[in-house]
Every structure is written in structure tokens, then in C-alpha cells.
């Protein structure tokens, strides 16, 4: 079963880190992806830029409207995700706990929802 690990953290914490600390975190994050891959748990991952770079898109009554992001103003923002393959929720939790950003942020583990094929 697949689980998406949504990585949230407080941007201020990241910005206050030294370049060396940031590089170290990046290195460890990439190394953990490799580890997941070797164990057969890795599906894909992607870091994303902070919410200020976002454009929010809505279509209402056929009309397109766009506004600047982020979608929700909170202290912690979504910074990326890791999509993993795990036996069950508890294995997904164990794997999510290994994501280095769990040490400074929060990993939200959610089972994927397979959209049923319409008849």
C-alpha cells in the first residue's frame, strides 16, 4: 500500500540555519531517499518552494481566477513529500520517522486514495 509523507516545517527555522547546516540536511535527506530505494519502499519524492511562490487557481462558473499563495497562512508550511510503499500504516510511520526533516518539522503520513474507475 502507498502512503504519502507530507513534510511540513517552519520556514523561519530553516532560514536561521547556517548554509553548512542546510547542506547537511539536504545531504541526509537525499541519502534517506536512497536508503528507502534500496529497501524497496521508495516511489518518488519532491521538495517544493515555499508558499510565497505559489499561485492559487480556481474555476467558478467557468471563470478562471488566480491569487497569490500560500493557500493557508500557517507557521508550518508544506515543503515537499515522499511517496512510499509500505506494508501498513505502522510501517509507514516507522519509515516517516527516518525522514531527517522530522527532526525539525512534522511529517503527515496519509494513505493514498485510489480513485475508483467510473463504470
Amino acid at each position: 500500500m502507498r502512503y504519502v509523507c507530507l513534510v511540513h516545517f517552519d520556514l523561519a527555522i530553516m532560514q536561521s540555519a547556517t548554509p553548512r547546516e542546510q547542506q547537511d540536511l539536504d545531504r541526509r535527506s537525499l541519502a534517506y531517499n536512497d536508503e528507502l530505494e534500496q529497501q524497496g519502499h521508495y516511489v518518488m519524492s519532491q521538495a517544493i518552494q515555499d508558499g510565497n511562490s505559489a499561485v492559487l487557481v480556481r474555476v467558478r462558473d467557468g471563470k478562471l481566477s488566480t491569487t497569490d499563495g500560500p493557500y493557508i497562512e500557517t507557521k508550518e508550511q508544506m515543503a515537499g513529500f515522499v511517496l512510499i510503499e509500505a506494508r501498513d500504516m505502522n510501517e509507514a510511520i516507522r519509515l516517516a520517522a527516518g525522514i531527517p526533516l522530522a527532526e525539525i518539522g512534522t511529517i503527515e503520513v496519509r494513505p493514498v486514495y485510489e480513485i475508483p474507475t467510473p463504470p
Binding site: 500500500m1 506494508r87 501498513d88 500504516m89 505502522n90 510511520i93 494513505p111
Partner: peptide
């Protein structure tokens, strides 16, 4: 059994069972 199977048997959410186990 997987977390999800246990949750289905006890009519609980997998998230609740998972935390119980953790």
C-alpha cells in the same frame, strides 16, 4: 495482520490503531 486489517476488524480508524501500537 496489518494496521488496516486490525482497524477494519475493530471498526476503528487505521490512524487510531497505528498510534495505539506506536
Amino acid at each position: 495482520l496489518t494496521t488496516e486489517e486490525i482497524a477494519a476488524a475493530f471498526l476503528a480508524s487505521p490512524a487510531a490503531i497505528a498510534q495505539r501500537i506506536v
